[in-house]
Design a protein around this nucleic acid. Structure first.
Length: 410
RNA sequence: GGGGGAGUGCCCGAGUGGCUAAAGGGGGCGGACUGUAAAUCCGUUGGCGCAGCCUACCCAGGUUCGAAUCCUGGCUCCCCCA
């Protein structure tokens, strides 16, 4: 019998296990056969770096590793060439080989922040390994297992079909490719987002067709972005990158709406099911200040990805700069150059701000006029200020305050 | 293969010869408020040392005193029929 507490923990953050009872059955199977389960997660290296949304399934995979099972991480170097249509309202751009390879490298690096890299517990495979050598004949065989009607049933295609949006033949092949991955690695369980259900089931069908025991399917909840509403995504701009400056990560976590706090705990931290239930209770009853809960969340997320030291430093920085609104001890130095000073001894701010922080001079002009740039807390009111008023002062631009530093005189 | 429609600022989307740096919305940014939250309100949102100038409505030409708006050619996308 599978350990019920483990089962509960494995189900945290999961939306569904399909078919019903399949996870339990697989755990029992592992016990009977005295072997670890092969838990598959496929990722397409479509973007150069990953954010917390991508780590949700990685976290779950890690949990399986910690329970003694084998994570089979499939880098979809070939499926990336098709472009997963899941949840898409239009065709994904196809990527070429060089971009994919580069993405795959950074992806692996970042995935290791979450996964256990013990070779006994981790297997990394590129699906080009088996997809590239497929013959046309094999493709016939694979695609013959399903009908067009079934493919068109899936939400995303159905919507596009109804809206007269284009669907390319290539996209239709995507589920077959992903499904065949499961056959190739003999997966016992496959993880994915809820938008992946169709693809995950294709894996079961193909495994059955090829005489394998079909995999259990575990779908994970979607992580909302920092806006708390839309799913975290780079294109929406509500993401927290795994490789970002920990101070920014901390700040971004602090900016999520309260309603998203528990979801974040559930999907991003390794708490047991009963601990999460306790947290939820405290939150509901108002026994904790949501702010403090969020701070704890930020600390835990950063600790996991970047280490305890980085987390502590990020928290100190945040408390200093934002809670107490003091200057951070580690402010960057903003260098003035001799040619920044004009005849009258004034410095034209839009020009130096552009050099220090990017953007355009017009943008800085606007911010200054709107009182968005300050020196030692005092809003700057003129476009040009004397060097004496700048040197040694703490310059801050905007409330996000990612743009700030101490001006170093000449 | 035949017929039709569309390409506007970060995005959506108005605009059919001058009043258009281009309505409206979204998003972003700045301010107030705060828990760097949410909600709300106000302002702002092409570039430029900016009461002015420059560049802009897919691209290249053309008509006109004047074009996002008209004409020609091209590119891209979509729909319908076959």
């Amino acid at each position: 019998m599978a350990d019920p507490r483990l089962l509960d923990d494995l189900l945290v953050g999961a939306v569904d296990v399909l078919p019903e009872g399949a996870l339990e059955a697989k755990l029992d199977l592992a016990e009977r056969e005295r072997r670890p389960l092969r838990v598959k997660l496929g990722v397409d290296p479509t973007a150069p770096d990953i954010h917390l949304g991508h780590t949700v399934v990685l976290n779950k995979l890690r949990q399986f590793q910690d329970a003694g099972h084998v994570a089979v991480l499939i880098i979809g170097d070939y499926t990336a060439r098709i472009g997963d249509p899941s949840g898409r309202s239009k065709t994904r751009p196809r990527l070429d080989g060089a971009v994919i390879d580069a993405n795959a490298e950074t992806y692996k690096e970042q995935a290791f922040r979450v996964l256990d890299d013990d070779p006994e517990r981790l297997e990394i495979r590129y699906n080009g390994e088996w997809l590239a050598p497929l013959t046309m004949e094999q493709l016939f065989e694979i695609t013959a297992t399903t009908t067009v009607a079934r493919i068109l049933e899936r939400d995303d295609f159905a919507r596009r079909w109804a809206a007269h949006q284009p669907i390319s033949m290539l996209e239709m092949l995507y589920p077959f490719a992903q499904g065949y991955d499961s056959v190739a690695v003999r997966a016992d369980i496959e993880l994915g987002g809820t938008d992946q259900v169709f693809n995950l089931f294709m894996g079961r069908d193909l495994q059955t067709y090829f005489g394998q025991e079909p995999q259990a399917v575990l779908t994970m909840d979607i992580l909302p972005g920092t806006d708390g509403v839309e799913r975290m995504s780079k294109s929406v701009g509500n993401y927290i990158g795994v490789d970002e400056d920990p101070r920014d990560m901390y700040g971004k976590v602090m900016s999520i709406p309260d309603a998203a706090i528990l979801t974040y705990f559930r999907l991003l931290t390794p708490h047991h099911a009963d601990e999460l239930a306790a947290l939820q209770r405290e939150y509901d009853e108002g026994a904790v200040n949501p702010r403090d809960l969020k701070a704890r969340l930020a600390r835990e997320i950063i600790t996991r990805l970047r280490g305890a030291e980085a987390a502590a430093a990020a928290e100190t920085h945040f408390d200093t700069v934002f809670r107490r609104r003091e200057s951070a001890a580690d402010l960057q130095a903003l260098e003035l150059r001799p040619d920044d000073v004009e005849e009258g001894g004034g410095v034209f701010l839009p020009a130096v701000l552009e050099r220090w922080f990017g953007q355009t001079r017009s943008e800085w002009r606007r911010r200054i006029v709107q009182g968005g740039v300050s020196l030692d807390g005092e809003p700057v009111s003129a476009l040009a200020v004397p060097v004496a008023a700048l040197a040694g002062r703490h310059l801050k631009a905007g409330k996000s305050a990612t743009a700030q530093g101490v001006v170093r005189g000449l």
